[in-house]
Design a protein around this nucleic acid. Sequence first.
DNA 1: TGTTCATTGTGACGTATTTCACAACATCGT
DNA 2: ACGATGTTGTGAAATACGTCACAATGAACA
Lengths: 243, 243
Amino acid sequence: MPAIARTTPIERQIESVSSATPSYGVDMDLDDEEDELNNLNIPDVVIRRLPIYVRTLHSLIEHGQVSVSSEELATLIGVTAAQIRRDLSYFGKFGKQGRGYDVGYLSNTVERILKLDRTWNMVLCGMGKLGHAIANYRGFMRSSFEIAALFDSDENLVGEEVNGHPIRPMRDLVETMRREHIQVGIIATPRKNAQETADLLVAGGVQAILNYAPVILKVPDHVTVREIDPVSALQSMTYYIED
Amino acid sequence: MPAIARTTPIERQIESVSSATPSYGVDMDLDDEEDELNNLNIPDVVIRRLPIYVRTLHSLIEHGQVSVSSEELATLIGVTAAQIRRDLSYFGKFGKQGRGYDVGYLSNTVERILKLDRTWNMVLCGMGKLGHAIANYRGFMRSSFEIAALFDSDENLVGEEVNGHPIRPMRDLVETMRREHIQVGIIATPRKNAQETADLLVAGGVQAILNYAPVILKVPDHVTVREIDPVSALQSMTYYIED
DNA sequence: TGTTCATTGTGACGTATTTCACAACATCGT
DNA sequence: ACGATGTTGTGAAATACGTCACAATGAACA
């Protein structure tokens, strides 16, 4: 397993991640500490499913349901029950035989695993039409995320206020991130500026980037990237269309 | 392989597809017709990578490059060269030993595989803020896609013109789709209306749905769905953040 | 307290996907 | 015409991921 060569397990790079499986240095002394937050080598596919579990559990909570079996959850989500059980088993034992899972408890647990039991401040780079739409989007707050600052390199946009935040010049990005200890960034710049923006985010200490620009970003191993790419999504679906 | 039970191969359902591997009825008479468009059982992961290849090839074309090796392409994209060669080999042989691939030819070929050598008309459902942003998005046209009609169930919005198209009432959706032979739909409705909208799209003959609503849609096997879900993307990245 | 029932958590197995590694071959310079 | 070079396409091996199937066990109720 050549450490460098395939640092970024393929699939990830494209469909999104480019993350570090943050599990190096495990030769300390093989302590069996199999705690909940044992994150040694949990497949990224599993991690990507967890938010869906959380979302579905929330919806059950809204409906007042207190307990759920892997089977029921599976049906709601459209996966197999075995998969849900296996996924959860990576982190510990949260169910009760014969009873299923306590909805509230499981929801809290998975949120804690994903570190959603806090608010993450984000910087948004690129305040064109897309940036404006993102800045005005109401869905982040409801989910542990908050846009803390807006940036654009166009001096004409700087100063404009969007959804309560002034647009700041790009040159302030790194400093702002450091000062406010921000680890999450959103890139909504034109394609050609995306990589340089990513570099700035990295300089500012970013650890997670949500990338709306249609480019594969090169980032260090400790930075996770997920692509939001509607065009690619469409382009891959047409393959299956039978006319 | 229980046909019904796991119609929707898990991963797909969540990370996007819910498609038909459109390859039933292959007991005709095992003709070896291994043509390019041989689509028997090509993994969806591969299909999802093809748009990235196309995009990267286009960028090479813009730079005037005429030939590219799998190695170079791999570096640009951030995958391994072997993977690119394997992916392409599902469809045929497009390279020349010692030389690599002809950029223009490969680009055209992959586009043809993805059926991007035509324009796909789409319907957009849900004309709230998000719907407006999508309707005004300039990136589709440049990529074989065109929004042909807008729909919303809110009578107050009906009639409003967005980017040259009037918003029509939902009740016209099915008829419009059939009349104009539209097979691609975008859902940008609130979460609670997403499933009913999907049902209408299916009734209208949809075969591909780009879903911006945070719900897992239930659709028949012949319909492919891809989710655009920035919140889930963020929620899965925080897992990796080390503070 | 024992029996029934439902449902978990997980070894063992199976399938899907990626990577290795190399024979085959096209091109070029001589 | 030939050897050197670079790069493809692909069997075979390796790894990653998903599913089966069942022993273990908690709850309910007799």
